[in-house]
Write a protein that binds this DNA or RNA. Structure first.
Lengths: 127, 127
DNA sequence: GTATATGCAAACGGTTTGCTCACAT
DNA sequence: ATGTGAGCAAACCGTTTGCATATAC
């Protein structure tokens, strides 16, 4: 985490929350969690730090339509499964399919840097 | 297009615009186009009709972070290439990879109904 | 000491919605 | 005639930002 100029209590706690969960939380969820330990933190600070972390490549930001973005403390290339009913997001234990990029390179209109793959369906709780 | 209760001029024009382009436009872009032929149409009407079309499965809604959603007049399963610089979205001429769903089924925590795959890189104009 | 980060609250921007009126059926 | 859909404008909601203050270095 050398990317930051200063390591504040807020920053430390936000990272701690993100790194210690695998539930791909929303900014608001993170805010509530951090607030348990640092009640004075503001939502703006959470957003600012999340943005920095995304820019630094330390975390992933997952955007879906209609609703809040989600954040993933694991910035490694990996895939997600999203429940179309409850919106929960979980990791899929499946290696990165590099051949997809090669496959698409011919059928595409630009230089491919990578891909984003997400599976959609119903989670155990919702089915 | 039998899903609608009434076929209005607005609805007809929105569909016409969407079906006659492959540029995956934003709601606002569609609004401007339709307005050339029907200046009195409102943006709310465009959004309402787009939503109906998505619900009816006639078009696709593409959501990315920070910014407007895009709409795709082609509702068939297919993949997209998105330029990380200018945000343009184009189709990728590559068959649907059904084996990905099978592959993920074992590594997943629910019932998979399908997947969404998008390639990211730089388009010809931006590279 | 100094510049970066925070808290607060207002602004922002895309999208949705309540209300009244128009018009497709 | 009837009730769905349109136009308008305000509301919504997640996110960003301006400003004054606090604080890590």
């Amino acid at each position: 985490m050398g990317g930051f100029q200063r390591m504040t209590e807020q920053r430390r706690l936000i990272l701690e929350v993100l790194r210690s969960t695998n539930c791909h939380p929303t900014a608001d969820w993170i805010y509530e969690r951090v607030r348990e330990k640092l009640p004075s933190i503001s939502l703006g600070t959470v957003y600012r730090n999340l943005r920095s972390l995304v820019d630094m490549g330390e975390i992933l930001q997952l955007s879906y339509g209609s609703g809040q973005d989600r954040y993933d403390g694991n910035a490694e290339e990996h895939y997600h499964f999203r429940c179309s009913k409850c919106g929960s997001v979980t990791d899929v234990d499946m290696p990165y399919q590099t051949q997809l990029d090669k496959r698409a390179a011919d059928a595409c209109c630009g230089t491919i840097k990578g891909h984003r793959l997400e599976f959609v369906g119903l989670c155990y709780d919702c089915q």
